[in-house]
Design a protein around this nucleic acid. Sequence first.
DNA 1: AAAATCACCTGTCCGC
DNA 2: TGCGGACAGGTGATTT
Length: 259
Amino acid sequence: MPELPDVEIYRKYIHSTSLHKKITDIKVNAHKVVENKDDYIKMLIDNQFKKTQRHGKYLFISLKTEKQLLMHFGMTGRLDYFKSSQECSKYSNLDVFFDNNYVLSFIAPRKLGKLKIINDTSDFINENNLGEDALKIDFDSFRKLVQAKKGMLKSTLMDQSVIAGIGNIYSDEILFQAGFHPRYNVNNLSNPEIKTIYKTINNVLTTAIDKQADPDKFPDSFLLPHRQKGADCPTCKGMIEKIKISGRGAYVCSNCQKK
DNA sequence: AAAATCACCTGTCCGC
DNA sequence: TGCGGACAGGTGATTT
């Protein structure tokens, strides 16, 4: 479930479980997901996690040496920290063993995740053409970026080179709460409307983080607990419909969301 | 430039 | 209950 709020929860998870412990061993289970060669990723052994940092949907873990371990969760990635006497998930891509006999597993059943040792986070962000983090960008920069775009609002929100962190689920939530249809043309937005969207992004993402990114804990006024075809809109009790945008499912209340 | 489609993988859900 | 197809919270390449 890895959009910005989920990745932020994972960041906190690593922060509270895995820092400042000696890494005694690692096990690479999915070579497709771990981009480095075996002898290179082995630099984790005898190393330590020192610090966590998130940018959009990417998580960076600083090592005791100058390097960083990059995590990207794809569509199904998650983490688990457990006693080494317990059994690892059969979908684990990488296991990191600590000297306290605990293990951190990076688990991505569809192998769409990515793990990699990198030298510098800002180089990585630049090379991968990532925009500013959706929670850190200021309004003026956001407004300028949006005004330079054309096309559908949902696509703009999900474009990681514009702002980083929003994916399919949370773009639906933001559009629902801001009251715009996913196909709404960004060119038609007024300044106050851009401001509304900016504030909604902030509100939705911070609320989601606050609720551990668990839709079951979200307020009932959110779309997410109702995000299925034929469900009742929490605002107008009309029907939530499913449409397709760029091959992705988008859920919308055409009564509440401006076309 | 933006949108759609496919590919990458594999588990789960839905309909017959 | 069983089977096949569609679909899944991401990204990147390719085509229209």
